[in-house]
Simulated assay, not measured.
Amino acid sequence: MSYTESYECDVCGNKKGERDLWWLSFSDCIPGSSPDDTIPVIKFSRFDVSHSHDKTVKHICGAQCAATLMNRWMSDQHDDPDQHCAR
C-alpha cells in the first residue's frame, strides 16, 4: 500500500497536482531598532515537502493567491499593528 499526501491552497481551495509548482508562505518577526521592538514579515518560498508540514505554513497555488494572502496579511497588520509578534 502506498501513502499519498494531498495539499489544498489556503486561499482558494485548489488541490495540488503532482507537477504543480506551488509555494509556501510563513509569517515571522525580525528584530526592530530597539531591543523591545519587532517587525512583522511575510515570507514566500518554493514548495518543499519537509516545510509543508509546519502548522504555521500556508500552502499557495500561485501568484494570484500569494497576492491575496499578502493583501490580507497587510490589512491585518494595519488593523492591529501591536498583535503581530506577541510573545
Rank of each mutant, 00 (worst) to 15 (best):
T38M: 09
A67N: 04
A66E: 08
L21I: 07
L21C: 02
S2N: 03
S27T: 13
S52K: 07
F44D: 04
V57N: 11
S50H: 06
L69H: 08
Q83R: 12
A63L: 15
K55N: 02
G17L: 13
P40C: 11
D79K: 09
L24M: 10
D48E: 09
W23N: 04
D37Y: 11
I60F: 07
W73M: 06
V41M: 13
N14V: 07
F26R: 01
K58W: 07
S2A: 08
K16L: 01
K58S: 00
D37P: 02
F47W: 02
M1H: 10
H84P: 02
E18R: 02
G32R: 12
D82C: 11
A63H: 10
I60S: 10
T56Q: 10
A63Y: 10
S52Y: 14
F47C: 08
V49E: 15
N71L: 10
C9A: 05
S45N: 05
D20I: 03
S45H: 13
T56V: 00
C9E: 06
D10L: 06
I42H: 13
L69E: 00
S25N: 04
L24S: 03
A66I: 06
T4A: 12
S33W: 09
V57L: 10
S2Y: 09
R46M: 03
Y3V: 05
T68R: 02
S50I: 07
F26A: 10
G62W: 04
D82I: 02
V49A: 15
M70P: 02
G62N: 00
R87V: 11
V41A: 12
K16S: 07
F44H: 01
A63W: 09
N71W: 04
F26M: 12
Y3T: 02
P35T: 07
C12E: 08
N71G: 11
H51Q: 15
Y7A: 05
T56H: 14
D79N: 08
S2M: 06
C29E: 09
T38L: 11
W22H: 05
D80L: 12
H51T: 15
I42Q: 14
K43T: 00
N14T: 03
S52I: 07
K16E: 00
Q77D: 00
V11Q: 07
R87T: 09
L21H: 07
M74R: 14
D80H: 10
T68G: 11
A66M: 05
E18W: 00
I30D: 11
A63M: 14
V11W: 03
L21A: 06
M70W: 09
E5N: 12
G62I: 04
I60G: 04
C61S: 04
T38K: 13
D48K: 06
L24N: 08
G13F: 10
L24R: 13
S33Q: 01
E5Q: 13
P31Y: 12
R46Y: 04
E5H: 01
H59D: 04
M74F: 13
H78K: 10
S25P: 02
D10R: 08
D37R: 13
Y7V: 05
S6N: 13
T68H: 10
C9S: 01
I42L: 13
Q64C: 11
